[in-house]
Each structure stands twice: as structure tokens, then as C-alpha cells.
Write a protein that binds this DNA or RNA. Sequence first.
DNA 1: GATGGAAGTTTGATGATCTCAAGTAACGGT
DNA 2: ACCGTTACTTGAGATCATCAAACTTCCATC
Lengths: 146, 146
Amino acid sequence: MQEEQPDPLTPEVVDLMASLVGVFHKEYEEAAAARSLTGAQAKVLGLLRRGPLPMRQIAQTLSCEPSNITGIVDRLEARGLVERQADPEDRRIKRVAATETGSAATAELRASLNFAREPLAALSQDERLQLRDLLRRMLDQARRQD
Amino acid sequence: MQEEQPDPLTPEVVDLMASLVGVFHKEYEEAAAARSLTGAQAKVLGLLRRGPLPMRQIAQTLSCEPSNITGIVDRLEARGLVERQADPEDRRIKRVAATETGSAATAELRASLNFAREPLAALSQDERLQLRDLLRRMLDQARRQD
DNA sequence: GATGGAAGTTTGATGATCTCAAGTAACGGT
DNA sequence: ACCGTTACTTGAGATCATCAAACTTCCATC
């Protein structure tokens, strides 16, 4: 807390990050919209990539109220992208699983993102490696704060 | 379009960027909420940092419909953070300007962001310079796509 | 100059997202 | 068997987003 930041570099990098976050966020929303998904729906569907998840955990990962997830999953389910499964271990829990269609949709969306993310094209292989390492360390730092 | 991405590095960096975007976005929302602002309100207020802007331009910068901005500015104005000014050059235009209170709020929010953004603390001065240059080039590339 | 199209903003309708408070069902320990 | 906790849903209310339609003002053209 005593840092008086005599360092003009940090704010500059923060601004750059903010701009890049804006660009990524916008492209993500557009990619989702192209598949008739909202950003929130795409996020939830993306979380199910590795397998079914309880509602509670989805809410926790997205840092929002569980009641919020109910509506989003309702709409995804109505479109056949997702289904609620009973948990045999604990009948309170409903596990949300992506259907075939749902998995296909996320895979497609992710692929389109990798394609759309042309900013990376400006960098050489070496620079991408540099960037990856820097980002990894920042993320580790961020997670350590939880 | 012919790129078949034999490069496993790009998707990895994209994933890292996505995670970092998530962290930043979440912190931004929290910082805004701590001042009773929604993310959208904070974004608009932040745009006015350099001076008044027409509604139209705010909508354009945020890539949304002008009618959307009307409501957000309404709420900011109701709280005295912003005011609508007539444009002497063109009476169709309403320029939105931050009030004293509004400017103070954004300045505070930005300062709190710079502080909150501890992920950068994991990097040395040299690495921050590297990161800045890489980000700059990615952003230039992104802008060139418009 | 008068007219007609275009631009900037607002209004109203609608739907999605979010929070909060309250309710139901199921778990689990005493 | 009771009680507190956990998981999820429901309902109310605010914000955010889009679209279509109105209104005012500008501007080019006749």
C-alpha cells in the first residue's frame, strides 16, 4: 500500500491491457452473436467443454449468483445445447452437460476465435513465446491473490 | 484463410489472453461496483476523461446502438456525474461532459485499477517494457483491421 | 428560398442479464 | 428425528442491449 508508483510504465501497460481486453471482448461477443448466442451463454457453454458441471460451480467460476445461471441454462436447454442431469451421489445437485450440438457449437466458436485473433499475427514465433511466458506469470500472480 | 495453423502456440496464447481478459474484466466490474457504478456506466464515464463527446460517438466507440447510450447517460446525469451540453455548431448534437464529481469518480477508479492490477507486479521493469512493446504491436495490428 | 433526404437523439417495446429475498428439496450431524 | 446447511428455483426489480418509429435539425438540390 505504500507504493507511490514513481513508475510511469505500469499505468501505460495497464492502459494497453485495457485496450486489448476491449478488442478481445468485442470479438468474442461478435463470434458468439454470429451463432445466435449471447456472451453469457457462450461463456457457460465454454465452461462445459471439459465435462458436466453443477450449477453452483458455474456460478462460482463466473462470480455471479446461482439464480442467474438458472435462466441462462434454461435458455441453452430450450435450444438443445445443454441438458440438466441428476447427480446420483447427491440429488440436490443438477449437473449441466453440453449436448452434441452444444459441444459442436463451442468447438466452432473457439476455432473461429483462434482464426479471428489476428493481432497475434503481428508477432514472430519468438515473440509469441515471450508473450506466453509473460502472460503465464501474470496469471499465476493473479490466481495467487484469490 | 489458407492458414491451417500447424502452430500449437497461437491457441495457447489465445487461451492465456482469454483468461487474463477474464481477470481484468472481473476486477474492472468490481472496482466500478465499489463506486455504485455498473460496468457500462464506468465505461462511458471513462470515455469522457479527455473531454465532452457527442452521444453518437460514444455509441460508436462502444459498438452499440445510440439509443442504448441514452439510458446510460440518463442514469449518470440523474446522479450528477455527467451533463448534456448543446453543441453550438450543430443543434442536433448533445455533447456529454463529465461534471467535477464525475471526473473525480473516474480518476479514482482508474487509480484503484492501477493499484489493483497486481499481476504486473510479477514482472520486472525489463519485462514490463517487453510486454508493452508486444502489446503495442498487437494493438496496432488489431486497429489496422478495422 | 423551399423541399426532401440524411443524421443525431429520444421513446417505447421486448428480451437477456444480473442481484436480492424467499421458497423448496435434499444432505448430514447431533 | 430435528436443525442447520447446501443446491437450486422462483419472483420482483434494475440495468443493458436491440429494433422500429418518432422528432428535430442539417444540408444538398431544385
